[in-house]
Each structure stands twice: as structure tokens, then as C-alpha cells.
Amino acid sequence: MTSADSPDLDLSRRLNSGLKRVASAHGVDAVLLATATAAKELADAAGLCAVTADSSHCVISTPDNSSVSTLDGGSSLHRLITSAAAAGEAIVQHRPQMEVELPSGRRILAETLLTVPVGVESGYLGLAFFWRDGVTPSAARLIVLPGLAWTCCLALRAQQHEARLQESRVEQQAQTHEIQHRARNLLATVRSIIRRSGQTSESPEEYASHLEARISALARTQGALTIDQHSGPELEDLIRAELTANAVTDGQFVIAGPSWRMAPRAAETMALTLHELTMNALKFGAFTVPDGRLAVSWSIEALPAPTLRWRWIESNIQIAQATPSRRGFGRELIERLLPYELGAVTRLTIADSGVRCEIDLPINERTAAHVDGA
């Protein structure tokens, strides 16, 4: 080795060491600080400033006290780096006596800048190394700094990728938990349907018919939940889906109420309630005669607490027997399950003039897809 080779070899070793530290750093601040420290060792740089891709702010790292600070956009240093990065190549700028004030109140000089565009993929427009106290880096030192900046860019991109992966893992775990929770609830509902259908059916044929229809109603709700898994199904859509599935003509019913999306568990229970009311209307109520009518309406009211007031009212019908001979699955749903599961206040009246069902549903995280919006 000749004496002329020694400085270059030393610079190469320091560059390799600095690049390794940058590549192995964990966290955005650690990457920027490692880059600033490497620049100090390689070219006596006083620090590093990186302008974010949206130019709303910049981050400044000073290796002398191992600090990383965030500065609002609009400073002289911020404007210089942004304009230099837009040129698309590494640029050296000299601004004697240019001061930068950090959020801590500390003021530093940034008199000479080398700005390297790094591209928005890393989250930053450009990285700028700065010097103070009249220090001007040599050409040999300036040559190695763009490579350091691009390595920093790759490390920042890797940090962002890792952050996105971690967010995906957390989201996936939450979704898995939600799927498991919903599966348990669904199985509990199916078991209840099977048990109660058997208790209220008078023959195997009736049991099979009721069970199939109730499972179908539940399946329609699951389809709606799959489509609207983030926002929840619309109450009006659940009502129309049930009436349409049972071939009720548009002229026999009126639906009126504001847009309101239901939480999954509430949607399942409400869909079963709608099914039982519709089946009863088809067999004994408003849909047994051409002139029979149904009005379904709801409103959102601030009683002692926000409440959805829901009404099912049949008219233009004469029911021969107002009092049923046995307690059916539908009455069980309305009078017991809705109050127990959702805290609803319910009233079911079967009179000669038709069925009237009133449900006051508290608006909370169990019933509404978006409580604040509701």
C-alpha cells in the first residue's frame, strides 16, 4: 500500500461503516441520525435536514447531541432544500450566516448545503447535509455523500415498509378476532333457531319449512354484512330484502325512515325479527288479502338517550283470532331476545285490525355501525 492510497482507503472504510449503521438502524429517527453521524465522520458535516414529500415540514438531525427535530415548513432552510431537490441533481449552495432555530430554542448555523434529491418513495423530497463555521467540504468528500443519501433513502423506504407490515399484522389480528367473534355469535343464533323451531313446530314438515326459511333469512343478512362489512347494512335494505324474498308486492307496503346502518349482531337479530313478522303477515295478517297494507317506519330521537323508534303497523285486515294459541318463535324474538341482547323496549300487539310491533332500540356500539354518525 502506498502513502497516496491511505486516505482513500480510510475514507472507504469509514463509508462502509457508515452505510452499515444506516442500513441496520431501526426507526425513521434512528436512520436519519445514523446518516447525519456518518456524514460528520466522512465530511465533517454539522447535520442533516430532510424535507418530507408533501413539503409540509422538514426533519433536522444533528449528530453532536444525537437529536432529531421536526421543523414547520416555510423556513429558509426548508425553501432552499425544496428548490434544490426540484432540480433533480445534487447541488451545493452557500448561505453565509443562515441560522436555523430548533423547537428547543437552540439556534444553529447552516451556511453550506449539499442537497441530494431522493424521490418521494422514501417519504422525502431531498436530503441536505449542512456545514457551519465557514467549513467547505472538499470535492472528494462531496462525492461520497450522495451515495450515503441514497442509502438513507432505501433505509427510510424499508422502515416505511416495515411499519406498513406491522399495521397489516395488527389489522389482520383484529379482523381474525372479529371473524371468530361473529362466528361464535352466528353459531349461537343458529342453535337458538334450531331449538326454538323444534319447540314451536307441530310436525316434522313444519319444522323443516320454518328452519329453512329462518336460516335463509339469516344467510341474506350475512350476505349484506359481507358487502357492508365496514359500514354495516342499511336498515331499509334489510326490510326490503325480506319483503322481496317473500314476493310481497310494492303496493302493499310503505317504508319510511332516515338512513341508519346497523352493527352486525343487531342486524342479524333484526333480520330474524323481520322474517317472523313477514311470515306472520303472509299467513294471518296484512298480506293474506289484496287490500291489506303494511307501514314500516322509524325515527331517531333523543329521549333520555339516543334511540331508534321502529314501527311495524298492519292495516285493512280482520284477524279472526287475536290471541295465539301458543307462544311462537317470533314473539320470543321480539319480547325476550331483543330486550336481552340489544336492550330494546318492545311492544307486540295482535289485534283484530292487524299486528302492531314497536321497538325502541338504544343507539350504541351494539346496535349502530357508527354511533357518532347516528
Rank of each mutant, 00 (worst) to 15 (best):
P7H: 09
R13W: 14
S17E: 15
S17M: 12
S17K: 13
K20D: 14
A23T: 12
S24N: 11
H26C: 04
K40M: 15
E41C: 03
A46I: 00
C49H: 13
A53L: 05
A53G: 12
S56P: 06
H57G: 02
C58F: 07
I60S: 04
T62M: 12
P63Q: 10
D64M: 08
S69L: 06
L71Y: 10
L71T: 07
G73T: 08
T82L: 15
S83Q: 12
G88L: 01
E89Q: 07
P96L: 08
E101G: 03
G105M: 11
V116L: 06
P117L: 00
V118Y: 04
G119E: 07
E121Q: 15
S122E: 07
Y124W: 10
G126H: 07
A128H: 03
F129S: 04
F130A: 03
S138C: 12
R141P: 02
L142Q: 14
W150A: 04
T151V: 13
C152P: 06
L156A: 00
L156H: 01
H161M: 15
R164A: 09
L165Q: 09
L165S: 04
E167T: 08
S168R: 14
S168F: 11
E171K: 11
Q173R: 10
A174D: 12
H177A: 14
Q180K: 09
H181Q: 14
A183G: 09
R184V: 12
R184L: 12
L187P: 00
L187T: 03
R191K: 08
S192W: 08
I193M: 00
G198E: 05
S201E: 05
E202M: 03
S203C: 07
P204A: 07
L211V: 02
A213W: 01
A213G: 05
A217E: 05
Q222G: 01
L225K: 01
L225F: 06
D228Q: 10
Q229K: 05
G232V: 01
L235R: 10
D237A: 15
A241E: 12
A247C: 09
V248S: 03
T249S: 11
D250Q: 15
G257I: 05
P264N: 07
A271F: 07
H275D: 12
L277R: 01
L277H: 04
T278A: 15
N280P: 08
N280F: 11
K283F: 03
G285L: 06
A286P: 09
F287S: 03
T288K: 05
D291A: 15
D291G: 10
L294R: 03
V296S: 01
W298E: 03
W298Q: 00
S299I: 11
I300R: 11
L303V: 11
P304D: 13
A305F: 09
P306E: 12
W310R: 00
W312M: 04
Q318I: 11
A320H: 00
A322E: 13
T323N: 07
R326Q: 06
R327H: 13
F329Q: 02
G330Q: 05
G330D: 04
R336F: 14
R336N: 14
R336Y: 14
L338C: 01
A344Y: 02
L348R: 00
I350R: 09
V355C: 13
C357Q: 02
C357P: 02
D360L: 11
D360Y: 02
A368D: 08
A368M: 08
H370W: 00
G373W: 14
A374D: 10
